[in-house]
């Protein structure tokens, strides 16, 4: 359970850490769009090269990032299998009942897995290098136009950052409760699906109770420190674009252009 690294901040001194959170948010968006725009392997090569460069610059260890993938390995396998066995195609390598393996299937499965891996790594890189507070500030600033429409932008951003802060605490708690119920003879990996679902009750009730208790405590602690929403609030780390941020935007455009070029012009 301690292995869960998705959504957590990894403290380090790097260019990527120092970038303005708005740049990183926009960058992540651009990156995700680039992932879904194209369907050729060579494009993904460009994407992967770009991602790898950013990871190197960020000083977040590759092993640490890959550990985050462990948690989605089932999703990954499931989706790849689905694509592998159910995609119709021109060349059929194997057929058995409703299942078949075709050239398109292999291609799709490969794409799907690759895309998902790149997606997870890319977006978790943003949370690894941006503290939830910065993330909140960045989101708040980017969403500012919606404030006029009555959207509680600051509050939504604050909720997000608190949720991220409590992920590891609740994970540890889940682990502890599980151990305690196991000490009372419970088991979480036996029986059929219904029995398994039932065995979750002793886990979920205490977890919810604890989450509410923590929420209550935290709300009180925030109030005690004069929190009263976004109004009249100043920032310890106000967002100001530096020259490196403008350069990052240019790099982003160049990246997008390269991907489009390899995909649409070179037809690779």
């Amino acid at each position: 359970m301690r292995e869960i690294t998705i959504g957590q901040y990894y403290p380090a001194e790097s260019v990527i850490h120092r970038l303005d959170p708005r740049v990183k948010l926009v960058g992540t968006l651009v990156y995700i769009i680039s992932l879904f725009l194209f369907k050729s392997f060579s494009c993904y090569f460009v994407v992967a090269a770009f991602l790898f460069t950013v990871i190197l610059l960020s000083k977040v260890p590759l092993g640490y990032i890959l550990r985050g993938l462990k948690t989605i390995i089932f999703l990954l396998l499931f989706m790849s299998m689905f694509n592998l066995f159910f995609t119709p195609g021109d060349v059929v390598y194997w057929k058995g009942g409703p299942f078949q393996i075709t050239d398109a299937g292999i291609r799709n499965a490969g794409f799907m897995a690759l895309r998902l891996i790149l997606l997870i790594i890319g977006s978790s890189l943003m949370t690894f290098t941006t503290t939830p507070n910065q993330l909140t500030d960045g989101l708040e600033s980017l969403l500012k136009p919606f404030k006029k429409l009555g959207l509680p932008v600051h509050e939504v951003a604050m909720m997000m950052s608190i949720a991220l802060r409590f992920i590891p605490i609740l994970m540890e708690e889940t682990n502890k409760i599980m151990m305690a119920q196991m000490a009372r003879g419970a088991s979480f990996d036996e029986g059929n699906l219904i029995q398994k679902a039932k065995s979750l009750v002793p886990l979920l009730v205490p977890l919810f109770v604890s989450a509410f208790r923590r929420a209550d405590d935290l709300a009180m602690a925030m109030e005690a420190r004069c929190y009263h929403g976004g109004e009249g609030r100043t920032k310890m780390k106000p967002l100001r674009y530096q020259s490196r941020d403008y350069i990052a935007y240019v790099v982003m455009l160049l990246y997008l252009a390269t991907v489009i070029f390899t995909g649409k012009v070179l037809y690779l």
Partner: peptide, 19 residues
């Protein structure tokens, strides 16, 4: 499972596990 019934373990703040 038999061992766990013979060696009872009460965790810290065990009241947090009532359900």
């Amino acid at each position: 499972r038999k061992l766990r019934s013979q060696v009872g373990l009460v965790f810290q703040y065990p009241e947090h596990q009532l359900f």
